[in-house]
């Protein structure tokens, strides 16, 4: 960075410090407090009870010991996010490469098409999926008309996954497209001319150039997907509790703000670990993460 331009970044840094750092300090502070009277808000005392509750509980039989109830919720959120990422990759990668191979004047239109869903509220789009998937919906009645009886789709884990992939797919397609579009196909042609097999070209030439896009896409899908709230609730029938729903529960019916804050910190730690691991993996491959 050129000296003298550094101050240009100060509004952005100040904004981030205030809007991201501020709430984070509050969450850390809340997680270390006692509960407020009646469980509303936080009290005056300092305690690590909230973190203890993450892993240790007195079970219903009265034994104090390791308890995985809450960690399992975190784990199932990670699994759901990972599944979302993999399916989005499987669908998004070919889509992105295909777009990058269209004539140049068509590409902006196709990219625009990918972003069109953002013009509508995510809540409305999720409700649209309820209409599509419900037993009286077009999908089920369409198959029914040709004599195929579909199993129940709405209120299943499958429906949650469909909704998640649908929501996050553009975040996979766009960075991969950005990387693939940059790729100079003449290099691949040169490789083939010089005698490399197509497999070698793919592995040694194409893959290293699109890899940053793939890594960025995976992170952009995985990280927000861990905190997904809407899809498990509306499409999954509320039967598979995710970490975001669990956190909301603590500020609501369970009236345990410190524990809710501790769960939020746990989520933050998991996301940080994922980022660090991804960054290290990327660096080992000598690829700079954008």
């Amino acid at each position: 960075m050129r000296v003298g331009t550094r101050w240009l970044a100060s509004p952005a840094l100040g904004f981030i410090a205030f809007m991201v750092g501020g709430p984070m300090v509050v969450i850390v502070w809340y997680s270390l407090r006692t509960r407020g009277p009646g469980g509303v808000g936080v009290g005056d005392g300092l305690t690590v009870d909230a973190y203890e509750r993450l892993v240790v509980t007195e079970d219903f039989a009265g034994n104090v010991g390791f308890d995985s109830t809450y960690l399992e919720v975190m784990w199932s959120s990670i699994l759901l996010a990972a599944a979302t990422m993999l399916v989005a990759l499987a669908v998004g990668f070919p889509t992105a490469v295909w777009i990058s191979n269209r004539p140049r004047h068509l590409q902006p239109l196709l990219v625009l098409a990918v972003t069109i869903p953002f013009w509508t509220s995510i809540l409305v789009r999720t409700y649209a999926w309820i209409v599509i998937l419900r037993e009286t919906g077009p999908l089920a009645s369409g198959f029914d008309a040709v004599g195929i009886d579909l199993p129940r789709m709405l209120n299943t884990r499958g429906a949650t996954l469909v909704g998640m992939v649908y929501t996050f797919l553009p975040f996979m397609v766009l960075p991969i497209y950005a990387a693939a579009e940059r790729f100079d196909h003449r290099i691949a042609e040169a490789g083939l001319d010089l005698g490399a097999t197509p497999a070698v070209v793919l592995r040694k030439i194409v893959w290293p150039s699109v890899r940053p896009g793939v890594v960025a896409g995976c992170l952009l899908v995985f990280i927000p997907a861990i905190g997904a709230f809407l899809q498990p609730e509306l499409l999954g029938g509320g039967r598979s509790l995710m970490i975001a729903n669990l956190i909301q529960q603590q500020f609501g019916a369970s009236r345990n703000w410190p524990f809710g804050s501790a769960l939020a910190i746990l989520l933050l730690v998991v996301v940080t670990v994922v980022l660090v691991v991804a960054r290290r993996a990327a660096r080992e491959a000598r690829v700079v993460l954008s």
């Binding site: 975040f171 766009l174 950005a178 960025a216 952009l220 809407l230 975001a244």
Partner: peptide
């Protein structure tokens, strides 16, 4: 290309936040 990633990140955060608010 330059605009794409920051815009994406904002959109991703927005999508996540929407879910929570709604």
């Amino acid at each position: 290309r330059i605009l794409l990633l920051p815009v994406l990140i904002v959109l991703a955060l927005f999508a996540a936040a929407c879910g929570n608010d709604d």
